Amino acid sequence: MSGNGNAAATAEENSPKMRVIRVGTRKSQLARIQTDSVVATLKASYPGLQFEIIAMSTTGDKILDTALSKIGEKSLFTKELEHALEKNEVDLVVHSLKDLPTVLPPGFTIGAICKRENPHDAVVFHPKFVGKTLETLPEKSVVGTSSLRRAAQLQRKFPHLEFRSIRGNLNTRLRKLDEQQEFSAIILATAGLQRMGWHNRVGQILHPEECMYAVGQGALGVEVRAKDQDILDLVGVLHDPETLLRCIAERAFLRHLEGGCSVPVAVHTAMKDGQLYLTGGVWSLDGSDSIQETMQATIHVPAQHEDGPEDDPQLVGITARNIPRGPQLAAQNLGISLANLLLSKGAKNILDVARQLNDAH
């Protein structure tokens, strides 16, 4: 009898209710805020589980004197976190989706994509230029951005401005803007500013005609071990179906173009009346040469937790077992079709030249 009692006690200790789920994140304040929001949602869904947040620095956090596009290494903000995932030191990792490459290392998958916040870019102005827009900034004003995508589009749109690289986390960039006289304004992701509670610093939100956004911008991705079915089931509740389908289309477009950090590629997606609209573009580094096109596809946005595919093969690095396969494939095909259209119009040449120029500098 006593033996059975011990077995029952052991089973209770090993039951999922007692389990601590370890969540990996970057150390920056924004990353911690984003991770806290994901953990809060998981806690609400699984009140019996405990969650421990483990923060670590990544290569991208450490190399702050070089433009991201020049470092010449993929997975700048993800490699150390993936290493911890691989060694079973954490069970899942919360990322900004735009930091996750469209091809993940073997053994990993994006197990959830959370509801997207505003994906557009924002302009934050130096205190002396508050009330201005990019259009009304004085001639030769210097605007800071760490992104080739932003610089290429904005140089084309605002030729009277000069664009220079600015690195560091959000706090560091804002301090550089406010305390030094080098920059009249800087460009940042609206979602990051909003998550930090800095709505009052948003001086201008850039519309798609001015600057399309990065693939996955404004959404959070939760990376897990691809074979860890328990954790895949656990994080599945975080999937937002519309965000998922938009981001599958965007990531398929980028992957098929073979774009990345070192080339200016941008997108804009919208879901309306059962249609998914995808606009994508590529630019030369100075913005003088560009190709942009829009395509659409009829896609039914499923309700969360309709029964999805059981075999769960990944699409552009994403596993969404609780979302039907048909809409996911339709979104992926839309991204591939748009990429093929741009490639047929000469996108590869623009991107190759951009890559060579970026590598040469």
Rank of each mutant, 00 (worst) to 15 (best):
I21D: 01
T25R: 08
R26L: 01
R26T: 01
Q29S: 12
Q29A: 12
L30F: 01
R32I: 14
I33L: 11
T35C: 08
V38K: 01
V38N: 04
V39F: 07
T41L: 09
T41W: 08
T41H: 12
T41K: 09
K43T: 12
G48W: 10
Q50D: 03
F51I: 12
E52G: 12
I54R: 09
I54P: 01
I54L: 10
A55K: 07
T58Q: 04
T59N: 06
I63W: 08
L64F: 09
T66Y: 06
K70R: 08
G72R: 08
F77L: 01
K79Q: 10
E82Y: 04
H83P: 06
L85S: 01
E86Q: 12
N88F: 12
H95D: 04
D99A: 04
L100M: 09
F108C: 10
T109W: 06
A112K: 01
N118H: 12
H120R: 13
V123S: 08
F129V: 09
E135G: 09
E135P: 11
L137M: 11
P138W: 05
K140S: 13
K140N: 11
L148D: 06
R150K: 03
L154A: 06
L154K: 05
K157W: 05
F158S: 09
H160S: 10
L161Y: 11
F163R: 09
I166Q: 06
L170C: 08
D178C: 14
E179W: 09
E179M: 10
E179N: 12
A185T: 14
I187Q: 04
A189F: 01
L193K: 01
L193R: 01
G203C: 13
L206D: 05
E209R: 09
E210C: 15
Y213L: 03
Y213R: 01
G216I: 01
Q217D: 01
A219N: 01
L220M: 13
R225D: 06
D228C: 12
Q229N: 14
D230N: 11
I231Q: 01
D233L: 03
L244V: 09
E250I: 01
F253Q: 01
F253A: 03
H256Y: 05
C261G: 04
V267K: 08
A270P: 01
M271A: 03
Y277V: 04
L278T: 06
T279K: 04
D289L: 08
I291P: 09
Q292S: 14
T298E: 10
I299F: 14
V301T: 01
P309G: 15
P313Q: 04
L315I: 01
L315F: 15
I318Y: 10
R321G: 13
R321S: 12
R321N: 06
R325Y: 07
L329D: 09
A330C: 15
Q332G: 08
Q332I: 01
L341C: 07
I350Y: 15
A354L: 04
A354G: 15
A354N: 01
Q356L: 09
